[in-house]
Simulated assay, not measured.
Amino acid sequence: MQTKKGLLSNSIFYVFVSGIGIAMIYPILWMMASSLKPATEIFNNAISLIPSQLMWENYSAGWAGFGGIGFATYFRNSVIVTSIVVVGTLLTGSIVAYGFARLEFKFKNALFACLMATIMLPVQITLIPQYIIFNEVGWVNTFYPLLLPGLMGGQPFFIFLLIQFIRGIPRELDEAAIVDGCSKMGIYWRIILPLLRPALVTVALFSFMWTWDDFLAPLIYLNNSTLHTVTIALRNFMDTQGSTSWGPLLAMSSLSLLPQLLIFAFFQKHLVQGIATTGLK
């Protein structure tokens, strides 16, 4: 009887979880299926995921872009911005986190309090002052406003996550390295950084997704169409010829989602491990 009850309980649980999973993934499946549907069928037969005919022309039309600019240009811009931001966030963010977690200096507690306060600060509050500064130095309509935050310490949330991970690394490793003649920078490079791999993978994944999906910053700082990222280009599909080209729009939306799905699928194990080992279960 207990075995039957346990089997029934597990069956109900898996059916319930599977239903939630299908409900969550259905919009993505609908987008990908609709990208292959004729324009008249996208909303007239919205529930069905099976196109009456495969319209690969939606992908070719979307990749051709608009205004003489192909969608490859927008993908290239997003790849450039995202790659530099991710690498900069990993390098500078880990150095800042190492300083807070291991080094002693004046005003350390006050600076850490400021760091924690900025985590709760909405980005809209600093948007206007940042725009004024970037405009004064002539960086508006360039990639610099998008790259600078990642190259100057990264997001405060990422720094806090790395601090929590470094605090879990035994200090005896630092002391042993000092006995062997290792400097503070040598401890960071030879001891701390290799052990940070799970947390660094987590930071890289979140940084990639947030930067790739960022719509507000490119919209504010980039005026030249040749500098637009994928998010702005997808929005521009809704303005061409006074109507929305839903087929090409959904086709390019599916392609823009593909890098995130692939990266998450390959690094999912490290993502879970990095979050769990930093106390953010």
Rank of each mutant, 00 (worst) to 15 (best):
Met55Lys: 09
Ala276Lys: 15
Trp246Ile: 02
Ile95Asp: 07
Thr231Phe: 01
Lys5Ile: 12
Ala23Lys: 05
Phe105Asn: 05
Thr277Pro: 00
Ala72Leu: 09
Gly247Tyr: 00
Trp210Ala: 08
Ile159Arg: 01
Ala33Asn: 11
Leu90Asp: 06
Thr229Phe: 03
Ala176Arg: 02
Leu262Met: 11
Ser207His: 04
Ser207Trp: 03
Ser243His: 12
Leu115Gly: 11
Gly67Leu: 03
Ile178Phe: 15
Leu193Phe: 15
Ile133Ser: 13
Ile166Thr: 06
Phe107Arg: 04
Val79Trp: 02
Met238His: 09
Thr118Val: 06
Ile159Gly: 10
Gln268Val: 15
Phe266Ile: 15
Leu262Ser: 01
Ile178His: 15
Ala204Cys: 08
Pro194Leu: 12
Leu257Ala: 14
Tyr221Gln: 09
Gln53Glu: 14
Ile119Arg: 01
Phe143Ala: 09
Ile80Asn: 01
Val17Pro: 03
Ala101Val: 10
Ile133Cys: 09
Gln260Phe: 01
Ser207Gln: 15
Val79Glu: 04
Glu104Gly: 00
Arg102Lys: 11
Arg102Val: 11
Asn135Val: 04
Leu271Ser: 11
Asn224Trp: 03
Ala177His: 10
Gly242Phe: 05
Ile28Ser: 10
Val140His: 06
Ile166Pro: 00
Gly67Ile: 02
Leu49Ile: 15
Cys114Asn: 12
Phe206Thr: 07
Ala97Tyr: 13
Gln2Arg: 08
Gly70Ile: 01
Thr3Gln: 09
Met1Lys: 13
Glu136Trp: 08
Val140Phe: 02
Leu219Asn: 13
Ser207Val: 10
Asp213Glu: 12
Val201Tyr: 00
Asn141Arg: 11
Leu261Val: 09
Thr82Pro: 04
Ile125Cys: 06
Ile20Lys: 06
Thr226Leu: 08
Gly99Met: 09
Asn10Gln: 10
Val96His: 00
Leu147Arg: 02
Leu234Lys: 10
Trp212Leu: 04
Cys114Trp: 11
Phe264Trp: 14
Thr226Ala: 14
Trp210Asp: 07
Ile28Arg: 07
Tyr14Ser: 13
Asn109Trp: 13
Leu147His: 05
Asn223Ala: 05
Arg167Asp: 02
Leu111Pro: 09
Ile192Ala: 08
Ser11Glu: 04
Ser35Pro: 08
Cys182Asn: 15
Glu57Val: 13
Phe134Glu: 00
Gly138Tyr: 03
Ser60Ala: 11
Gly153Ala: 03
Val123Lys: 12
Leu193Arg: 14
Ala177Met: 05
Trp139Lys: 04
Met185Cys: 11
Arg190Asp: 10
Ile28Lys: 02
Pro170Lys: 06
Val230Phe: 10
Thr211Ala: 08
Leu29Cys: 09
Leu280Asn: 03
Val123Asp: 14
Ala177Pro: 01
Leu8Ile: 12
Lys269Leu: 07
Ile263Lys: 10
Gly154Leu: 00
Pro27Val: 02
Phe206Lys: 07
Thr3Ser: 06
Thr126Glu: 01
Phe71Leu: 07
Trp210Lys: 08
Gly70Gln: 10
Phe66Leu: 13
Phe157Trp: 11
Val85Ile: 14
Phe107Tyr: 06
Asn224Lys: 14
Gly247Leu: 02
Leu115Val: 11
Leu151Ala: 12
Leu261Thr: 08
Ala23Asn: 05
Pro122Val: 05
